[in-house]
Design a protein around this nucleic acid. Structure first.
Length: 512
RNA sequence: GCUCCCGUAGUCUAGUGGUCAAGGAUAGAGGCCUCUCGAGCCUCUGACGCGGGUUCAAAUCCCGCCGGGAGCACCA
């Protein structure tokens, strides 16, 4: 480059003529990258949650990427509950199914079909005898400890080379109850010197006598994730498996199984790990806190579940554009929630009515309050006159002001925003702050939020960290519909949830 | 430790050999507007991890290093 630049201009001209015409302007790509081998109208995708609880913000990427590809290719989106029996640490939960389906509804994602792995167990069994007879798999009766040790050392377990009849007989023994939990497993034969020990003769099916929330004790032999998916992905006609990169090893395993079963499977694609900075907590950790009562259910804002975001007035479209903005990048990222809030603010700001709200309230009594002033009208939205006005009754001469502003301006003149000017005098022994009216027209003095004591509605705002902020809202918030979203001026967006038993209005903070 | 993946501004992302002296978003700074600390408008700050190669030409290809992450279950 430097050399070329150093050439005299006439030389450059000559050089330019000899070069091929510049490539056409790159087209800016919007949305997700094309899916390899995808044909419009023929793409079938799956979202495969384990029903251990409500969906978490971390699951949003899987939901929306798959849904977005469905849109792009006019394809199908299946929900396939990945509800095999799990483990002691990871159990399917009875309410997990409905929690997830409700979350998907809230997410605005409508599945084309819903499947349950627990309905498909017999389909998984069907291939086992053939795998055993053809010597591609075997029944291993080593204790788990022994199995792992052999695997680490690349050693074969004694059952590996036993004849097919023996294998099939043991398989039947597994099904019939001759073997108990932990006494026998079906393993795929792979290279025993595979660099990844976990890959060596991976377990395909094992025995569990735990009760399953949907099918109870109907089955005692349960497939593991890779084996069940190798079959289900093919049988359900999935064309593209798009999932987090924590599951890349499972791709190899499914491919090894397709080779063994003589099947051809779908394409794979992955995205990197996403963490929302403020949501340090995982789905399984939230589950503990919810089940233990530490949290106020699955919609506690600290869970960062879909339901909790909906409760906070965070729109599904905001979550959608938030997660799609990361594309299919394989980098592991940590994103501040501010990015999500920014998306949501774009949606809420233009349509959300404004209301006055005062936290940490101080009651201020204005002397010489103008006697003729009984009510004023303020616009619902300063930039949207078509949204109309709301009325505030002001005749009482007593107002709640933010304590912070009162303390900072004691003795000075201030303006109640959109209303009138006054001078703060002093806090009387009864706790009421005395003030004196000065004038009405706008004035370059500090402008402060206020709520008339008359009709003031006590509000408790649930914050994202689980704490509550108490304050007063103007009268008009008390008859707002449940689920209404307001911007409390200078405080932030909130969603109203209705009154509690003490007639305290409950609100949930969205974001500033 | 082993296997795999990833390194573009504070954060996220576009970019796949040539108008890329790097685009967008968000955050930050300043200004305008606004009787919100919100929104809007304008301006600005700010990045190709490092070192070698290949090439006329490298963010882009190759190698090494450094840094981050994931996986390494009879969980999903």
């Amino acid at each position: 480059m430097d050399e070329v630049n150093a050439l005299p201009p006439e030389k450059l001209q000559e050089l330019a003529k000899s070069l091929p015409a510049p490539a056409p302007q790159r087209e800016e790509r919007t949305g997700l990258p094309p899916l390899p081998g995808a044909e419009k109208g023929k793409v079938v995708l799956r979202f495969a949650p384990f029903p251990s609880g409500a969906l978490h913000i971390g699951n949003a990427r899987g939901v929306y990427i798959n849904d977005e590809y469905r849109r792009m290719y006019d394809g199908k989106f299946y929900v396939v509950f990945d509800d095999t029996i799990g483990s002691a640490e990871k159990k399917p939960l009875k309410e997990g199914y409905s929690l997830i389906l409700n979350d998907l509804k809230a997410a605005g994602v409508e599945p084309d079909a819903i499947f349950y792995k627990s309905d498909r167990i017999e389909r998984h069994y069907r291939f086992v005898p053939d795998l055993l007879r053809s010597g591609k798999a075997y029944v291993c009766t080593c204790p788990a400890e022994k199995l792992r040790l052999n695997r680490e050392n690349g050693m074969a377990c004694p059952e590996r080379e036993k004849d097919p009849d023996w294998q099939v007989a043991q398989w039947e023994g597994m099904l019939s109850g001759q073997y108990r939990k932990g006494e026998a497993v079906v393993r795929l034969k792979t290279a025993l010197d595979h660099p990844n020990p976990a890959f060596r003769d991976r377990v395909l099916l094992r025995i569990s006598e735990d009760e399953h929330p949907r099918v109870g004790h109907k089955y005692r032999v349960w497939p593991l994730l890779e084996y069940s998916w190798a079959i289900d992905d093919v049988e359900l006609g999935i064309t593209h498996v798009i999932r987090g990169k924590d599951l890349v090893m499972e791709d190899q395993m499914e491919e090894a199984l397709w080779a063994a079963l003589g099947m051809k499977g779908p394409h794979f694609a992955h995205w990197g790990m996403l963490r929302v900075r403020e949501s340090k907590i995982s789905k399984s950790k939230s589950m503990q806190e919810v089940l233990s009562g530490q949290y106020d259910g699955w919609t506690d804002p600290r869970t960062w579940s879909f339901g909790s975001l909906e409760r906070r007035g965070i729109r599904s479209e905001a979550i959608r554009s938030f997660v799609l903005s990361f594309g299919m990048s394989l980098a592991d990222i940590e994103v501040p929630a501010e990015s999500l809030y920014s998306e949501n603010r774009k949606l809420l700001d233009p349509v959300t009515p404004r209301r006055a709200f005062v936290s940490d309230p101080e009651l201020v009594e204005i002397k010489q309050f103008p006697s003729g002033l009984a009510q004023i009208f303020l616009p619902n939205h300063p930039n949207m006159p078509e949204m109309g006005n709301r009325k505030l009754k002001v005749s009482g001469g007593r107002f709640y002001l933010p304590g912070k502003d009162v303390r900072a301006n004691m003795g000075r003149e201030i303006r109640l925003k959109d209303f009138l000017n006054l001078r703060l005098l002093a806090k009387a022994s009864d706790g009421i702050v005395e003030a004196i009216f000065t004038s009405v027209p706008n004035k370059p003095v500090p402008r402060i939020q206020w709520v008339p004591q008359e009709g003031a509605k006590a509000v408790s705002v649930l914050m994202p960290d689980g704490s509550r902020v108490m304050g007063y809202g103007e009268e008009s918030v008390s008859d707002a519909r449940i689920g209404s979203i307001f911007q409390f001026e200078r405080f932030g967006f909130v969603r109203l949830e209705g009154n509690d038993e003490r007639d305290l209005l409950q609100a949930v903070f969205s974001h500033p």
